[in-house]
Design a protein around this nucleic acid. Structure first.
Length: 432
DNA sequence: AACCCGTGGAA
DNA sequence: TTTCCAAGGGT
């Protein structure tokens, strides 16, 4: 059908790229390790966001061997704020594979590269083509959009099968001896000209034979089914202050090895699921997505309806819920003292409405006594018994392994998700 | 196939 | 304000 249009496309796109290519940090040379790191960071992340992270990362871990030897916590800290933190751990795991299996050199071998942790079909093609100039396709969102438009392809690019088909097409377009430049040219066009909204067709180097444009479909292509909206969750977090040797510090904990925000540090918090509702508060459900930041306002508005609690009552209820849940789940007895504020955190699939409460540390409960502690926690909220129990018990108790007392100065060592960085920054700023 | 995994910029 | 989605991979 389009062998002529295809040849035109490859030729014009390549020469366009060689003219306008951006001067990016990972384009200084073709060191496969540098290419690899850049491709991992660029997964689902914009160029402008990546650049400062990349500069710092390469200065700190200039070779695969340096990355392989580094403490994992240090690598995670370097990734703080970039998101998708499993990328950091997978990258280091990959670096260790490269050191142990390939003498510290990223191999010029497709199967070996593809087997590295965190390296999938796209990244394999990117590394093989950019670092080694091998004629492998590197199909990302940009490439699917550009080729869908140019060849007027109406398959749903959200379906994995579509990517496979476009990979075959992309491979057939690679000019002899220019795989790296051509693959980057495709992505550069998608990033700078053939953008998702309002594509810049008037400045496009391949406008002349673009079938999507000729069909008047450049604005509806690519076809892509909508993603499911993220579910709202209300989280109750505690800023727990210490006394005695822990005066002036607050209690933080490290998340589990796997799952959401794996191994990141955070304020202790619990899911607010009153009445056994596992998806969050009924108020959160009614609000739906996008309005999570207005919990207090929503609660206040509900008061007008009659039965709903005021914001003050809602906070009191949440504080008690948090206290009970922390003792049941963590064996951590605290006394909430006041509502501090609210912070919203948006993931790809969840929206957290984080309600933050100030609390005073009580004591740690032994696991056998946790059930009893749940009851005690309810009474503890207003009880002097709380103080008698805590002052007697707190001194000699060991801290669980995943907990630490920290001050502002420790923020430089531990990696926190963005939401807790914001909360703690604001909290410590208020104290000055 | 359908989820799970962060964050920020642009329109 | 809301919506989209960015040089995706793992399970």
């Amino acid at each position: 059908m389009t062998t002529e249009a295809a040849r035109y496309f490859s030729r014009e796109l390549l020469s366009w790229y060689l003219e306008i290519r951006r001067d990016l940090p990972w384009r200084q040379n073709r060191d496969p390790y540098r290419v690899w790191v850049s491709e991992i960071m660029l997964q689902q992340t914009r160029v402008d966001t990546v650049i400062p992270f990349y500069e710092r990362f390469m200065e700190k871990f200039p070779t695969a061997a340096a990355l392989a030897e580094a403490p994992e916590a240090e690598v995670l800290k370097s990734w703080e704020g970039l998101g998708y933190y499993s990328r950091a751990r997978n990258l280091q795991a990959g670096a260790r594979e490269v050191v142990s299996l390939h003498g510290g050199v990223v191999p010029d071998d497709k199967e070996a590269v593809a087997s590295l942790r965190g390296v999938g079909p796209y990244t394999t093609g990117a590394i093989m083509s950019i670092a080694f100039n091998r004629p492998e396709p590197a199909v990302d969102g940009n490439v699917m959009r550009v080729l869908s438009r140019y060849f007027c392809l109406e398959e749903d690019i959200a379906k994995p099968a579509t990517r496979v088909g476009i990979e075959k097409l992309a491979a057939s377009l690679i000019p002899e001896g220019s795989a790296g430049d051509f693959n980057q040219a495709l992505m550069e066009l998608g990033a700078l000209v053939c953008t998702p909204k309002s594509p810049g067709c008037l400045t496009c180097p391949v406008l002349q034979h673009c079938e999507g444009r000729m069909a008047g479909k450049e604005h509806i292509l690519p076809i892509k089914t909508k993603a499911k909206p993220p579910r709202p969750e209300t989280r109750l977090a505690a800023i727990i202050t210490g006394s005695g040797e822990h005066a002036g510090r607050i209690l933080v904990r490290q998340r589990p090895e796997s799952g959401l925000l794996a191994q990141m540090w955070e304020l202790p918090h619990v899911l607010f699921a009153p009445g056994g509702d596992s998806t969050g508060s009924t108020a959160a459900k009614r609000r739906g997505r996008g309005a999570a930041a207005k919990a207090a306002a929503a609660a206040a508005a509900e008061t007008a309806a009659g039965a709903a609690p005021s914001a003050l009552e809602q906070h009191a209820r949440q504080a008690e819920y948090m206290s009970r849940a922390l003792s049941a789940e963590e064996g951590l007895l605290v006394r909430p003292t006041s509502w501090w504020g609210e912070m919203e955190h948006v993931f790809s699939h969840i929206i957290w409405d984080v309600q933050v409460f100030r609390a005073e540390f009580g004591f740690w409960v032994q696991s056998a006594a946790k059930q009893e502690a749940v009851t005690l926690a309810g009474a503890a909220a207003e009880s002097a018994v709380f103080y008698e129990a805590s002052s007697a018990a707190a001194e000699s108790q060991a801290l669980p392994a995943n907990y630490r007392w920290i001050g502002p100065e420790h923020m430089k060592e531990l990696a926190f998700p963005n939401v807790f960085v914001r909360i703690l920054r604001d909290y410590w700023n208020e104290l000055d």
